[in-house]
């Protein structure tokens, strides 16, 4: 899966501008799905199997990024954020625009060295000297520019959130030979700006069960108050986060499957964050949902790290789960 993960994380597709990543995914799945659709918000919806319980698996294909909101008289591009872009991660970061233009994020960090500089006070230097010779203008979008790195078990990339979930879905679709269910592999858009793609795709699919596959922040690093989520100890089953409460019956079923097949997992109760599960849960008459998360360090920075074993275990778990009946 590593070449696939490299390809996915090195593609540029911030929220609302998911064409590029959608084409990559389409190429990977077209021979394995029974039917593929794209909806009004650009969600890619692939079905496998028919007739049984409708199960929606959602992994979002967008990533955080920026949009230019002004090119100033000296050619520096000012920007608004697409999704939760933390200022601490920006100074010196490189970005790449959809038209290929590279740029570096600058800020006056020597003026008041110990102060946090906010996004609105930063700018992108794209080598221009005036609005006239700027290769970008208002409305152009960019994402972080970082190559994929393979450290063996641990792998690093930009947009592991949530291209790693995308990779898991692609791999699960390929490995799933037979299922009694009608499974919808949904690669959602605009998750980072408020789970918007999942709202409309869930409405279209109208599933019986929803599972969001996303990353969750691992706190097994120095200087953290808590130590609850660890890299390498398996995917997490989320009881709650700020967006939704996992259906206790569904979580119980996941635990049963994981324990039977000796797949490691972690139990997670989170105070912050939210995933596509929230949107799926609220569609139509309501849907039992759960978030299946891959532990990830440095979430929403240009270098996100996950453990490859967790990724493989997540695929294994999903395949086992989908091969059999689900009674909740």
């Amino acid at each position: 899966m590593k070449p696939l993960i490299k390809k996915l994380t090195e593609t540029f597709s911030p929220s609302g501008y998911e064409n590029a990543i959608r084409e990559v995914i389409m190429d990977e799945i077209k021979d394995f799905a029974d039917e593929i659709k794209i909806d009004a918000l650009g969600n890619l919806i692939a079905r496998k199997g028919s007739g049984g319980k409708k199960i929606m698996l959602a992994a979002h294909m967008d990533e955080i990024g920026i949009m230019v909101n002004h090119v100033d008289k000296n050619g520096f591009a000012r920007f608004a954020s697409l999704g939760g872009v933390f200022p601490q991660t920006l100074v010196g970061s490189r970005v790449r625009f959809m038209n290929g233009t590279p740029g570096v994020i600058g800020a006056h960090y020597l003026k008041r060295p110990i102060k946090l500089i906010w996004n609105k006070d930063m700018f992108i230097d794209i080598g221009a000297t005036s609005p006239k010779n700027s290769p970008v203008q208002i409305g152009d979008v960019a994402a972080f520019d970082r190559p994929f790195v393979d450290l063996g078990d641990r792998i690093i990339g930009k947009s592991m959130d949530d291209r790693i979930g995308v990779a898991v879905l692609i791999e699960t679709l390929r490995k799933l030979k037979d299922t009694p269910h009608e499974v919808y592999f949904v690669f959602t858009t605009q998750e980072e700006v408020g789970v918007r793609g999942a709202i409309t795709s869930a409405y279209g699919v109208n599933p019986d069960i929803g599972i969001a596959i996303d990353v969750t922040g691992a706190d097994d690093i120095p200087e953290m108050d808590t130590k609850t989520i660890f890299l390498g100890k398996g995917p997490t089953f989320k009881f709650k986060d700020a967006g939704s409460i996992g259906d206790p019956r569904l979580i119980k079923h996941f635990i049963k499957v994981a324990e039977k097949d000796k797949i490691p997992y972690q139990r997670e109760v989170a105070n912050m964050g939210g995933t596509d599960a929230r949107a799926i849960q609220l569609t139509h008459a309501g849907v039992p949902v759960m978030t299946l998360s891959i532990p990830c360090r440095y979430v929403h920075s240009p270098s996100e790290m996950v453990d490859y074993k967790d990724v493989q275990n997540t695929v294994k778990l999903l395949v086992k789960l989908l091969e059999k009946n689900i009674e909740i």
């Binding site: 939704s244 849960q281 609220l282 569609t283 139509h284 008459a285 309501g286």
Partner: peptide, 10 residues
């Protein structure tokens, strides 16, 4: 209000 939204829709 997750329950109310979905029950009203149904």
């Amino acid at each position: 209000a997750q329950g109310a939204r979905t029950s009203a829709f149904a």
